[in-house]
Design a protein around this nucleic acid. Structure first.
Lengths: 209, 209
DNA sequence: CTAGACTTCAAACGATTGTTTGAGAATTTC
DNA sequence: GAAATTCTCAAACAATCGTTTGAAGTCTAG
């Protein structure tokens, strides 16, 4: 976490990500963050302006790439001759899996992401909606095309459940622990496969299958 | 929230539940809680001893009844001549639905519950595991009997996803808003039905169906 | 080499945190 | 109705919070 080879700004972002994942935004203090980053306390306000802006930058650093990856994967999936529901789901899930495999704090970030759902923080919601709302809208359109037999309301119900399950699974909650012989990558890829098949089954249920 | 007809202790628990749901355990201060409860600041430490113990009592007040209801429903479901997977799922989900319909803060509590998942707080996890772990173990056994074709590891994968989706859906996250003409009860019952069918589809997927 | 910009630092700011105190009010017990 | 117990209250406790300050350090451009 110290890692003095990184710049002050990067070390703060890394330490903040880790501590926000473990103690929440209110629960992690700037003194804990700067101590973990081996940086002076005032550096946060110098480089980011405030704690709130630091939180936003923790998101921006990862979400820019994550959502770009999702859109890329979606475009690729829809370019296939006969794109399936599973392809659209995988386009949403797999980039998040890749992120969670990032050596430098990616797995911490997906837990931060899960916290953002739990926090009903108005300021944070606006920031996320303003910057990344268009991605979710594109996926909603793609899902609607894959599931034409579902009413709009019904579709939103199911997508909401899928988004929740995804957030939960990616955050590594719950009882599942990987077997000791299994690599992190194997573990995560199995997780993504399970989630895609599980979500597809739930989304299709009641339709013609 | 004020509701002076309730005792000091009950008013504190109600206000704490509401504020923990909205701002988290670290984010809600005892001064905010006691102000909302129209109670003196010192009353929390007098009646509960500390903020941590107050948090535990917020859980205990609801979880005793919720988990008793789940075990009752599970017993009833397993007493049927041919219990189905959907029956076991409903036994887990429906009591939570009932709780979320409780006029006096039930819907706030399910959001508190979702926060407890997000918090990796060791103390809280131990409290929940010590007091209610046996309920989850009974359900795991029942699910295993309904899905004998699934390996133990595979089953745990899927149950974890179901638990996450349930927590998420019950916490009323996400984009779904009920139509203005729809009652809270109608809305929640539709939610539970969707969730049971969705979860059942995902749990069975890949088996004989 | 120097002037200027950028970055780090220890120290302190006022505000807020959970908790404790001891006096007083309210209630219960006999 | 007096004594004892339970509860409420304003006030203060030390600790910690996010933020600001101004001086000292480091770096870069001319």
């Amino acid at each position: 976490m110290a890692e003095l080879r990184f710049s002050t700004k990067q070390r703060i972002l890394g330490a903040a990500e880790d501590l926000f994942a473990r103690r929440g935004f209110a629960g992690a203090s700037l003194r804990q963050v700067t101590a973990a980053a081996k940086v002076n306390l005032a550096a946060v306000n110098y480089h980011f302006g405030s704690k709130d802006r630091l939180i936003e930058e923790v998101f921006r650093r990862r979400l820019d790439e994550l959502n770009a990856g999702r859109l890329r994967a979606l475009k690729q999936a829809l370019a296939k001759p006969e794109p399936k529901l599973e392809d659209v789901l995988a386009a949403f899930i797999k980039p998040a899996l890749e992120l969670s495999l990032d050596r430098e704090g990616g797995s911490a970030f997906v837990r931060v992401l899960a916290r953002a759902y739990a926090e009903h923080n108005e300021r944070l919601r606006k920031f996320l909606s303003d910057n990344y709302g268009h991605v979710l809208r594109e996926f909603a359109t793609a899902f609607a095309r894959q599931l034409p037999q579902l009413g709009k309301e019904e579709l939103y119900w199911r997508l909401d459940i899928v988004a929740g399950a995804l957030t939960y699974a990616m955050a590594d909650f719950g009882v599942i622990k990987r077997r000791s012989g299994q690599s992190e990558r194997e573990f995560r890829e199995r997780a993504a496969d399970h989630l895609v098949r599980f979500a597809a089954a739930g989304l299709k249920e009641g339709s013609e299958r």
